[in-house]
Nucleic acid binder design. Structure first.
Length: 307
DNA sequence: TAAGCGTGGAA
DNA sequence: TTTCCAAGCTT
């Protein structure tokens, strides 16, 4: 059969999304803006499978922004667990405090107000506006940039993010708000499950015949080689080790407990501990011990430097 | 603007 | 084993 000349990506994506979208808990109709915001922060650079159980715990424990705002930060960081990038948890708690104090405990629905909250950038603000409140606004993440790079530009991979991403993606959205929001979700879902970075499943793609990359014969990427990210021995690894000690401890710990977490390079350990203090992820008590922020201090005489 | 920031699963 | 990658934000 021949293709109608005015068939759009959205025409194909919407029915595909209805039939194939994953049943993710934060997509359920009864989830509040708060639930969507928590999911979006947790999902930054973090796979869905690891987020799901933690998101459920957070929603049960802190169902409103004011609940999280009132929690001891030490408990927030423990509940964050090993999701990674724990500064996200700090900023999420700070954002919750602003929402509770200035927005009547309701997550804002407009992009500008969302952007003013700590830890919320161009992607997350639009994701909340679209997915929680059905706004028509382009939602551009790594998945969407890859889908657009392939389907629209015929390139194997997206380049660096640019100011053109937003208007370019908006041009793909239907005029109707609800349909546009759903199209944004569908673009992301396609990139996450079909039009993936490695081994795209083009045979299952609903826009296969509209895809510029297909028409071009699926050319390989061209451009400069991207430098691999190292891990072993980095400050990130050391910070992770230090924080893991504090998360696992019931309360404040002595300095040697942290020193044993990284014996390779004492100077590096000291530098990383200092950076954690600066970031507000760790506190030092008056008696010299270290703790997660807001950790209740034991009043028992379990620690007496004079003895 | 580019670098820094966690973690772990899959290729 | 190593490398790549996953719904980014901040400075």
């Amino acid at each position: 059969m021949t293709l109608a000349p005015d068939t759009t990506l959205a025409d194909r994506l919407l029915p595909w999304y209805v039939a194939h979208a994953r049943d993710l808990p934060w997509r359920h109709a009864d989830v509040t803006g708060w639930g969507v915001l928590v999911s979006e922060i947790m999902l930054q650079q973090t796979p869905v499978a690891r987020v799901e159980p933690i998101w459920h715990e957070w929603m049960a424990r802190w169902p409103r922004p004011s609940d999280l705002a009132a929690a001891p930060t030490a408990e927030v960081l423990r509940a964050w667990g090993k999701l990674g990038y724990p500064r996200r948890a700090l900023r999420l708690q700070a954002a919750a405090a602003v929402v509770a104090a200035e927005h009547d405990d309701v997550v804002p629905s407009d992009v500008e107000t969302l952007l003013a909250l700590p830890g919320i950038g161009a992607y997350t603000a639009r994701a909340v506006a679209a997915f929680a409140y059905g706004r028509r606004c382009p939602v551009v993440d790594t998945n969407v940039r890859r889908v657009v790079a392939r389907a629209v530009h015929g390139r194997a991979e997206a380049g660096d993010a640019s100011a053109r991403d937003l208007p370019e993606t908006e041009a793909l959205l239907p005029l109707d708000d609800a349909a546009a929001a759903r199209t944004s979700a569908a673009l992301m879902e396609l990139g996450a499950t079909v039009c993936v970075a490695r081994g795209p499943r083009c045979a299952d793609c609903p826009v296969h015949d509209l895809c510029a990359w297909q028409h071009a014969g699926r050319p390989a990427r061209d451009g400069p080689v991207k430098k691999a990210q190292r891990w072993a021995g980095t400050d990130r690894q050391v910070r992770g080790r230090l924080l893991d000690v504090l998360r696992g401890a019931p309360g404040p710990v002595e300095a040697p407990a942290l020193e044993s977490a990284w014996l390779t390079d004492p100077a590096q350990r000291a530098r990383c501990l200092d950076s954690l203090l600066v970031d507000g992820l760790v506190e030092q008590l008056a008696d010299g011990r270290f703790a997660l922020p807001g950790e209740p201090v034991d009043t028992q005489a379990t620690h007496d430097p004079s003895s």
